[in-house]
Design a protein around this nucleic acid. Structure first.
Lengths: 110, 110
DNA sequence: TAAAAAGTTGAATTATATGGAAACATTTTG
DNA sequence: CAAAATGTTTCCATATAATTCAACTTTTTA
């Protein structure tokens, strides 16, 4: 598990994508693009939570929600609100960065 | 307007934050952290849309929503869903990157 | 291997994001 | 300045994200 985690951390998202849903350009890839993001977001939360040595219940307490909610955030393929993401990572003392890239320009929204 | 846009693009978010809501550590800053993010997200959308020379109505057509919806996304202080963000920037042919940073480690969710 | 701890799931509820329509306001342009 | 274009706001409906509770499953540990 530890090994698996470490490996994941070292993989770029593109590598994950290639592994999990096929090369760029295939219809499958486009279709699951968003689900993948959500999946990864869940994985991220779980990863960081583990890193902090917290149980879902403890993380829940930090935020003020039940453990079941954390579980859902970690494994759901559903859509999520920015507010929720920020709330969770703030509790985990992790920084969320957000950037929009267009051509050569890149604006960062941290 | 052109000048204003260019200037904004050149500013980092931290600069924007400092200018708009005060230095790090002040309660005001923490309090408006999320609102600010949303505000900036709106500004991003507007910026990129302008860059593409689209009206709100045109962008709306690309996505399949009314111009009023675009207006709301651009100027709302409200919360937004990941799906919505992706949808908008995809229409704008811009790339959204998402990353979570914790200590020295950084995982990218692109 | 049994008990405890941690995580998952489903059903139900509440809160709120998405969205349309239309009236209004602001900006642009001829 | 008047008309046209663009953007904003409000009211409203609908969809769905956030959340709880409790039962259930899986994992850990003594």
């Amino acid at each position: 598990m530890e090994t698996k985690n470490k490996k994941m951390k070292m993989m770029t998202l593109d590598q994950l994508k290639d592994r999990d849903i096929g090369e760029i350009g295939t219809p499958e890839r486009d279709k699951y693009e968003f689900d993948l993001r959500m999946e990864l977001l869940g994985e991220m939360i779980k990863s960081v939570r583990k890193e902090r040595n917290l149980t879902q219940e403890q993380l829940g307490e930090l935020i003020g929600v039940q453990k079941s909610q954390i579980s859902k955030l970690e494994r759901s393929t559903k859509n999520v609100t920015i507010e929720t993401i920020l709330k969770v990572f703030k509790a985990l003392k992790a920084n969320v960065k957000f950037s929009v890239e267009m051509n050569e320009l890149e604006f960062n929204v941290a």
